[in-house]
Design a binder for these strands. Sequence first.
DNA 1: ACTCATATTGACAATCATTATCAATAAGCC
DNA 2: GGCTTATTGATAATGATTGTCAATATGAGT
Lengths: 135, 135
Amino acid sequence: MSTPAKRNTWQREAVREALGHNDGFVSAQALHAVLREGGSPIGLATVYRALADLATADEADSLQSPDGENLFRACTSSGHHHHLICRSCGLTVEIEAHAVEAWAQDVAAEHGFTAAQHVVDVFGLCAACTKLAAH
Amino acid sequence: MSTPAKRNTWQREAVREALGHNDGFVSAQALHAVLREGGSPIGLATVYRALADLATADEADSLQSPDGENLFRACTSSGHHHHLICRSCGLTVEIEAHAVEAWAQDVAAEHGFTAAQHVVDVFGLCAACTKLAAH
DNA sequence: ACTCATATTGACAATCATTATCAATAAGCC
DNA sequence: GGCTTATTGATAATGATTGTCAATATGAGT
């Protein structure tokens, strides 16, 4: 009872693989669409569940887009890192933020805060999308 | 037409004042509830519109809670700034982050990104809540 | 103060992402 | 091969937010 006994299903694998094949962050809806187009008759609810599981197991990173959508991305490096995300095409670049890490700790300590966590993500338009938007 | 001619209504003032009376972040729904309890027969849609306007006019700050809700807060300093939020009691401190601003711009530019925006918020336990949680 | 053009309101419908429901299915163990 | 039960998936439900549009109230003009 303490161990709920996880089972391995092709659906879970399909989601894991689809995530791995994608470079940027994807919404659950989009991933579901991709899987359906790829032939898998997987259910939407199942995609949500699989993604939630992956996120819990630290196999995927999740963040909220400015639109309030939940986006997911395969996360190989278990280390702490941040992202630079194209808000148009979803291209994602992992970025280091040593300075920001330190800054966050300092600011928190300065105000007597402990157990500081931080949310640091940069959204923008990547070079390609900038060109398209400019025309 | 270029200047849509804004009008002043008691509803807009009510929202502005209700926001000012609140120390932490509030959801549009919650603010609406407070106003109704206070006697104002203001409509929900109007609260949303007023908050959106205030946010656009930089009179209010908005951020997304981890639940995907949009939270708003009266914004004393009109400039761009970030927040240090106690995840236990909701206490919020406005913080400046010149270093982070610059860093975000640099990182974005480095990778060819334009129109960079960033999400930077620090969550932690304030001094008071740390004491409570300590022993 | 009175009128008028229109910005604004508000009740409700519509959307959209996400979660819950629950009977049917299939994974892992014997 | 059976059995137990975790898991699936179609659909309903939820909950926040936005759109709709007739009715109203604001601010400028007279």
